[in-house]
Amino acid sequence: MEVFKEYLTKVDNRDQRERMETLFGWVQDTFPQLEPVIKWNQPMFQDHGTFIIAFSMAKHHMSVAPEREVLERFLGEIKESGYETTKQLIKIKWKEPIDYALLERIIAFNIEDKKDYDKFWR
């Protein structure tokens, strides 16, 4: 995934870099219609020019940003997976497993919900 190559080369921790590469590859394989882009220094995926999901890295966790409306809709499932949240983010600690089934539902919801949407953000 060339778009994210430069972003990933700046990640010093090999395990974290590989985990992000795996996650990005999974998104691309699961949702090949999504376009990978870097905006505001963040890797994200968009569909027909509208935002679907973004990812970022912190010292103790990776952040998943599906937009507040989607986060609130899936909050119960997110909490069941054991993840912390903020108003805008899901925090997945580096040692926690990634709940790919949950991410798939979140991304699929956002794609369907925004299929006729023509702006980047809600």
Rank of each mutant, 00 (worst) to 15 (best):
Val3Phe: 07
Phe4Leu: 08
Phe4Val: 01
Phe4Ile: 11
Glu6Val: 14
Leu8Ser: 04
Thr9Phe: 09
Lys10Pro: 03
Lys10Met: 10
Val11Ile: 15
Val11Asn: 05
Asp12Asn: 15
Arg19Leu: 01
Arg19Met: 12
Met20Cys: 03
Glu21Ile: 07
Thr22Val: 03
Gly25Met: 08
Gly25Glu: 15
Val27Met: 03
Gln28Arg: 09
Asp29Trp: 05
Asp29Gly: 10
Glu35Cys: 00
Glu35Ile: 10
Pro36Ser: 06
Val37His: 11
Val37Ile: 07
Val37Lys: 11
Ile38Asp: 09
Lys39Leu: 08
Lys39Asp: 10
Asn41Trp: 00
Pro43Arg: 08
Pro43Lys: 02
Pro43Asp: 04
Pro43Glu: 11
Met44Arg: 12
Met44Trp: 02
Phe45Val: 00
Gln46Glu: 06
Asp47Lys: 08
Gly49Cys: 06
Gly49Phe: 12
Thr50Arg: 13
Thr50Val: 13
Phe51Tyr: 12
Ile52Gly: 01
Ile52Glu: 00
Ala54Trp: 02
Phe55Gly: 00
Ser56Cys: 07
His60Met: 00
His60Cys: 00
Val64Arg: 06
Ala65Asn: 15
Ala65Ile: 13
Ala65Trp: 01
Pro66Thr: 00
Pro66Gln: 06
Glu67Ala: 13
Glu67Ile: 09
Arg68Gly: 13
Arg68Cys: 12
Glu69Arg: 08
Val70Trp: 11
Arg73Gly: 01
Arg73Ser: 08
Arg73Ala: 14
Phe74Ile: 10
Leu75Cys: 08
Leu75Gln: 15
Gly76Asn: 14
Gly76His: 05
Glu77Asp: 11
Ile78Leu: 10
Lys79Arg: 15
Glu80Leu: 12
Glu80Gly: 04
Glu80Thr: 03
Gly82Asn: 09
Gly82Asp: 09
Gly82Leu: 07
Gly82His: 09
Glu84Leu: 10
Glu84Asn: 14
Thr85Pro: 04
Thr86Ala: 13
Thr86Met: 09
Lys87Met: 11
Gln88Ser: 14
Gln88Met: 09
Lys91Gln: 14
Lys91Gly: 03
Ile92Leu: 07
Lys93Leu: 01
Lys93His: 05
Lys95Val: 08
Pro97Phe: 02
Pro97Arg: 11
Pro97Leu: 02
Ile98Ala: 07
Ile98Cys: 08
Ile98Arg: 10
Ala101Thr: 10
Leu102Ile: 10
Leu102Thr: 01
Leu103Asp: 06
Glu104Ile: 00
Ile106Trp: 08
Ile107Glu: 00
Ile107Ser: 00
Ala108Trp: 09
Ala108Gly: 15
Asn110Lys: 15
Ile111Gln: 05
Glu112Lys: 08
Lys115Thr: 06
Asp116His: 11
Tyr117Leu: 03
Asp118Thr: 14
Asp118Ile: 04
Asp118Trp: 05
Phe120His: 04
Phe120Tyr: 15
Arg122Gly: 09
